[in-house]
Design a protein around this nucleic acid. Sequence first.
DNA 1: GCCGTTTTCGGCCCGACTGTTTTCAGTCG
Length: 571
Amino acid sequence: MAFEDNQQLTRIFEEIADFLELQGENIFKVKAYQKAARGLEGLERSVSELYRSGALASMPGFGKALVEKVGQFVDRGEVELHQQLKSSFPPEILHLMDVPGLGAKKAALLYKELGIGSVDALEKALREGLVTDIKGFGTKTVDKLLEGIGLLRQGEQRWLLGRVSVLAEELLARLRALPVVQRAEAAGSLRRGKETVGDLDLLVISSAPEQVMEFFAGLGEVIGSGPTKTSIRWEGTFQIDLRCVPAESFGAALQYFTGSMDHNVALRGRARRMSCELNEYGLFDALGQCIASETEEEIYAKLGLPWIAPELRESGAELEWERQPERLELGKLQGNLHTHSLWSDGTDTLEQLAEEAQRRGYRYLAVTDHSRSMVVANGLTVERLLAQGEEIARLNRNFKNFRLLWGSEVDILGDGTLDFPEEILARLDFVVVAVHSQFSMSPEAMTERICRGISHPHVDVLAHPSGRKINRRAGYQADWERVYAVAREHGVALEINCSPRRLDLNDKAARRARDCGCLISLGTDAHSLPEFDYLPLGVLQARRAGIEASSLLNSLSWEQLRKRRPHLADV
DNA sequence: GCCGTTTTCGGCCCGACTGTTTTCAGTCG
C-alpha cells in the first residue's frame, strides 16, 4: 500500500514535536520526534511491518521510547502521549506556528497571556491591538505577523523542481553578469535535486558584496537584508536567499547551505568526534586552525570521507556507506524512452522529434503515442498505429547511428488487459504500459490490475507507476512490493517519469524498486521539444535513488534493447 | 529522546538577521 500507517504516524510525531515545543520542552527531545517523523515520511516499507519484525529498533533515531510509541500506534492506532497533549490545548493551536515569523515561544506566550489558540483568533487580536501589551510584540512584529497570516492564507506550496531550476539559472546568469561577482552558485534543496523546493539559496563570491546585495534587493520584495545576506520574495510568495561569502571559504559555505540539515548534523558530529569544528567558514582543528574550506572535496577528505554528491545528502546515513554509488551522467544515456508526437497529443512531427533527439546526442528515441482508449489524447487506432510504424520505418532508413523506436504508451484497462492485442504489441519496438483511468479502485484491485498489465508478453516499461501528480493528487493505492516483484519476474522496467509535475517513481520508491531487482527506465513523457529538457530532472531523481547506469534501461544500446525483444526480425 | 572507537551522562550545529527587552531572545535555515 502507499503505507497509510506511515503517513498517519509521521503526522502524529510531528504534532507531538510541535506540542512539546509549545510546552517549552527540551529542544532536543522535540528534534528527536521531528527526526523520527522525517525518517518515517518516505519510508518504502510499512512501519507496522518493521515494528512487528523487530527491524525498527535498528533504524537510526528510533530508541526505546520511540519504538514503544510506535508499538502503541500499531496496537491501538494512537499514541498515548499524543492524545494527552491534544486534549490539553485548543484544537487549532498548532496552526499558529505555521505563520511565518511566529515560533513556539511566541505562540506559547500568546496562548498563555490572551488565550489565543487559532490563526483567526490571532488575526483578530493583532487587528484590535490586543497584543501590544505583551513583551516582545512591537508594531513591526504585529505588521510582520499580519503579513505572515496573509502569506499562509495564500497557501502557496513548495515550487516544483523544474520551475525553480529555470528560475535559478536565470538569476545566476544575471548575478554572474555583474562585474563585481566572481562566482555564483545555487545551493539548498535545488542543488540536492529535491522534487519540490521550499526556497532558493544562492551563494556568490564578490569583491563588492554591498553592490550585489543592492542589485539583488531590487529583484523582489525584501524580507531582510544585511551586509552578507539578503532575502527577497519572488512573485510575492517564493523566498530567495542570497549570501556573499569569502572566496577562501566558498566550499564550506556551499557544503553548509546545500544541506540537508540531517546530513550537516551528521557531518558536524563526525567533525566533533575528530576534535574539529565545522561551520560555513571551514573545518577547524582543536587549535582553531582552519584545515579545509576552499572546496567541498577537501572538507570531506579531511573528515575521512569521499566527496558525497549533493543528491545523496539527505538522512546522514550516507556518511556510513561502504561505497558511494557511481554517479549517473546525462551524457551516458543512449536515449529517451517515452515521448509523444503529433500522431496523438504531442505537438511535433516524427521528423522534428528525431532531429531534436539527434541534436541532443541520443542514439535512439522511443515514440510512445497513446493507445486507442485514450480518446481525449487522440489515441491511435490499430490502423493508425500500423501507418505510423511504416512512417517510422521509412524515416529510419535515412538515419546514421540513430533510430526512432516504434512504440506505444498502452493503457492498462480496468481489468488488467491491454489496449492493443498481443499480435500488435509483438510488432512494436518498444511497449510502455500505464494506468490512465479508474484511479480510485481498491488497493487490491489496483494491484491485480497493474500486475496483470505488466505480465503480458512484450511489455518493456511500466510508466509513471504511482500515478501521482506533485502538489495535485496522490498516487493510486497498490501493494508496490508485489508490483516490483512481478515487474522483476517479467523483466519489466519501472519508469522514472521525468516530467517535473510527476517525477514518478519518486526517489525513494525508485531506490526500493531497484533494491527489489527491477530495472529503471527514464522517460521525459515529452509532448513538445522543450520538454526534452526534463531528462536531467529524472537523472537527478535516479541519482537520489542511488541508481547506477547498470540498472538503467537507457544505458543499453539499440542492439541490446532489441535483444530484449527476440521476436523482432532483424532490420 | 537519542547516542557512544575518548562518554551510559552530557552532549546534541550554529550563525545571520530582526525587533526591541539597552545586551539579547526569537526565528530561521
